[in-house]
Every structure is written in C-alpha cells, then in structure tokens.
C-alpha cells in the first residue's frame, strides 16, 4: 500500500485486481496524446501554467477549442479542469493568490495581453457556475443585468426583447413568463441554473464556459440542461467541465481528459469513450479511479 504516496485519494488498488497503476504515481509527462490542435480554433491555449501561491495547478497545457463545438473536460477531482476553464475568461483574476503563465487566444488575440480588458473579454466569453447563483433580484432583472451593464440597449422594448429571447433560448420562458418580476431566488434549482444560462446568453457571448453546471441538480433538471446545450451549440462555442462521463459522452463533440494538472488526451468524444489512446484515460473511463 502506498499510503504515504500522496496520491492515495485517487484510486484504491484493491478495486483494480490484476492491474497496477504505478504510472499514475510516477512522473507524468506533459505531452498530450490525441489531437488537441485544430485549424478552426475559436480559442487556443498554449503552454498554460497556473499556480496557486507556490503550488502548480496546471502544467503546460495546450489546447484548441473549435468554433461551435462542445468541448468537454473530464478528469478526477482536483485535476485542474475547473481552474483551466476559469482561465478562459480570466475569472481567476479575482483570486489574489492565483498566477497564470502562457498564452490564451480568442480569435487569435491573446486575452492575457496587458492591454486586454477583462470587461469586453467576459462579454464575449460568458460563464455558468457549478452552483446556480441568481442575483437576489427579479427574474427579469437577472436576465437584463448583462445588457444593462454593458449598455447594449437604449430602449426598454429592446431589453424586453432580449430578456424574452434569452429566456426562450434557455427554455425557461414558458415556465416564468407569468412571473417575470418575482425573485429569481424563488425558482427551483434547475430553473435557477437555466436562469443563469439565460443571464449569460443575454449578453450574446461567443463562447460559453460551463463549470459543472449540473452537479447541484437532480436528474430531470440535468436532462433539460443537456438538451439546452445541444440547442445552444448551434450559436455558441461551449466548453463544459463535468464530473460525469456520461454527460460528457452525451453532450460533447470532443473530450479532453485532465489528470494531476496535465492534459493527458484530447480526442473526439466517441474515440475517447470507446478507444482511448492513453492508459490513464482508459483507467478513468473504466472507473478504476475518479
């Protein structure tokens, strides 16, 4: 037993009879297998390193996210997938102890450029969080928040239109159209999360980041959000972090597997789940740790 190896939360050798996963504890290579790069990249990440104080959370990750695709990021907890996602619209800037190195481009423009302002960046790259976080305001105000803040509309009618359109796109309109001015916090968990999605798309971003958007929801609400993602992928580029392999398999076009802060493998989703190239991916897919 490697009780002092430091990785012992990751897997239990007792569950994997006949096969040892020693490589999981040995020095991992920073090289990614599969095809992380693409010609039609909406966002591309090159040599990304992220540190929390002195602890490195992301090791030299490079990856492209294609226009209008759904890119899923999976991996055991603590593998850095959420950290990676939050780097894509610089949400990590809000943490005092976080340091980011490397290059992330959006339409070939480095978002970590000194001159880049986070405000227009986040207007283009929206994010939906793990726990639904509607503002303690009315449903209408929640959705109208982004357009108002960014000054996207000048007339009330336009705003009404955007709110309705966004709620429809988030397939929430029919449920809330009669109570647009009641508090958003009064909705159910699944509705709240769809409200947050509506709030994000009201700004008309180009990319939507989703950080385990269904982990706080029940199966039925999860199913609705997954349907929604399929619809949204027509207009938006989506990057989703999930701890559920089934969800990744259902909603994504491509899947990236993260392990210990490294990007191990990127491939078409079907490929990853049927015939993974890397043995770590395979071990994870087959449920030997996670």
């Amino acid at each position: 037993m490697n009780s002092n190896s430091g990785y012992n939360g990751l897997f239990d050798p007792m569950l994997a009879p006949g096969r040892t996963l020693d490589f999981a504890q040995q020095g991992l290579s920073n090289k990614t297998v599969g095809n992380p790069f693409s010609e039609k990249a909406k966002m591309s990440v090159r040599n990304l390193n992220v540190y929390y104080d002195n602890k490195q959370a992301i090791h030299d990750v490079s990856l492209d996210i294609k226009r209008n695709e759904v890119m899923a990021m999976i991996g055991p907890s603590g593998c850095g997938k959420s950290t990676f996602l939050r780097c894509l619209n610089r949400m990590n800037d809000t943490l005092d102890n976080c340091r980011v190195e490397g290059e992330v481009t959006l339409d070939e423009h480095n978002i970590y450029d000194r001159k880049q302002d986070v405000v227009p960046l986040r207007a283009r790259v929206g994010i939906v969080f793990q726990k639904p976080n509607p503002f303690p305001k009315s449903i209408y105000e929640n959705v109208a928040y982004g357009p108002k803040v960014h000054g996207l509309v000048s007339r009330r009618a336009q705003l009404d239109e955007i709110v309705e359109d966004s709620l429809r796109k988030a397939s929430l309109w029919d449920e809330v159209k009669d109570r647009l001015f009641s508090p958003g916090t009064g909705l159910s968990g699944g509705q709240q999360q769809r409200l947050c999605i509506a709030r994000t798309i009201a700004v008309s971003p180009e990319v939507i980041l989703m950080d385990e958007p269904c982990s706080a929801l029940d199966p039925i609400a999860t199913a609705r959000i997954e349907e929604l993602m399929a619809e949204l992928s027509q207009n938006f580029t989506i990057a989703i972090v999930t701890h559920s392999m089934q969800q990744a398999a259902r909603v994504s076009n491509r899947t990236a597997y993260f392990h210990m802060g490294r990007l191990i493998e990127v491939n078409d989703t079907r490929r990853v789940f049927t015939n993974p190239e890397h043995e770590l991916t395979e071990a994870y897919i087959t449920g030997r740790f996670g």
Binding site: M91, R122, G126, I127, Y145
Partner: peptide, 27 residues
C-alpha cells in the same frame, strides 16, 4: 454576501464597481 454572486456578475463582464453597486450593495 456570497462570493458566487460577485462571480456571477464579474463573469458577465461587469466591472468591479458595477458588481458592487448593482449586486453586492443591493444584497
């Protein structure tokens, strides 16, 4: 005021002062 509310507003691209004035203070 929970950090998730600030994240929600910042994630939409609001500036810090907008987040404070429109989300944190009302809450």
């Amino acid at each position: 005021v929970p950090q998730s509310l600030r994240d929600g507003s910042l994630g939409l691209g609001a500036t810090q002062s907008e987040t404070i004035k429109l989300v944190v203070i009302p809450a």
